[in-house]
Computed example of a mutant assay.
Amino acid sequence: MTEASDHTDGGDHTDGGDSTDEGNGVELGLALRALRRRADLSQRQLAERSGVPQPTLARIESGRAINPRFRTVERLARAAGGQLAIGTPTVISGITEPTPVPHDDMRDEAGRRYPAHLDVWPVHEPRDWPGAWWAEWYRLPPERYPLPLPPAAYELNRRYRDNRRWGAEVQRTAQVRRVFGNDLPATSWRYVAELPDGKLVGELRAHERSPFLEFGEWHPGMPEREMVLDGVLVDARYRRLGLGRRLVTALIAGMREAGIDDAAATAEGFGIELLLACGFAIEGQRPAALRLGRPGKRCFS
Rank of each mutant, 00 (worst) to 15 (best):
G242Q: 02
D119I: 03
A152M: 05
G16E: 10
P100S: 04
E3Q: 13
L32M: 11
D262K: 09
P148N: 08
L213M: 13
D18V: 12
R205T: 11
V91P: 01
G29S: 14
A236S: 04
A289N: 11
G25I: 07
R286Q: 15
E74I: 04
A77E: 05
Y238G: 02
D40K: 08
T96V: 12
L156K: 09
R107Y: 03
M255T: 15
A267G: 04
T2G: 12
R139N: 08
R112H: 15
Q43E: 02
L57G: 00
V123M: 04
L292C: 14
H7A: 13
R71V: 12
P53N: 14
A47C: 01
A206K: 07
R36W: 12
A58R: 13
D119V: 14
P115A: 06
Y238T: 03
G293Y: 08
G11Q: 04
T8P: 09
R161G: 14
G63I: 03
P223E: 03
G29P: 06
A236C: 00
R177H: 11
F180D: 15
E97L: 06
L46G: 04
R190I: 11
I95C: 10
I92D: 04
A80D: 01
E109I: 13
R286G: 15
E155G: 10
G23K: 07
E27T: 14
S93C: 09
P102S: 09
G259M: 11
K297Q: 13
A258Q: 14
V176K: 03
T8D: 12
E273W: 08
V201Y: 01
A31R: 00
A288T: 06
M227N: 03
F270Q: 15
L247E: 02
R78F: 00
G63S: 06
L247Q: 05
R112I: 01
L46P: 01
G284F: 01
R75P: 04
Q43I: 10
R158M: 11
G81R: 07
R38V: 09
M227A: 06
R113D: 07
G254K: 07
Q285N: 15
P55E: 06
V91D: 05
G221F: 00
P220M: 06
R69L: 11
V120W: 00
I272F: 02
S188K: 15
L35K: 12
E169I: 08
S301Y: 13
R246P: 02
M222V: 04
R113M: 08
S19L: 12
L251V: 03
P141E: 13
L247R: 02
T266L: 09
L200E: 11
E224A: 10
H117M: 08
Q171W: 10
V73I: 08
A253R: 01
L243P: 01
P53I: 01
G29Y: 06
E155R: 14
A265N: 10
R112N: 08
V234K: 03
N163F: 13
V120C: 02
E74C: 12
D162Y: 07
P126G: 06
D119E: 11
F70N: 08
H219N: 10
T72R: 07
L46C: 13
P146V: 10
P211L: 00
L213G: 00
P287D: 11
R225Q: 05
Q285D: 12
P68H: 05
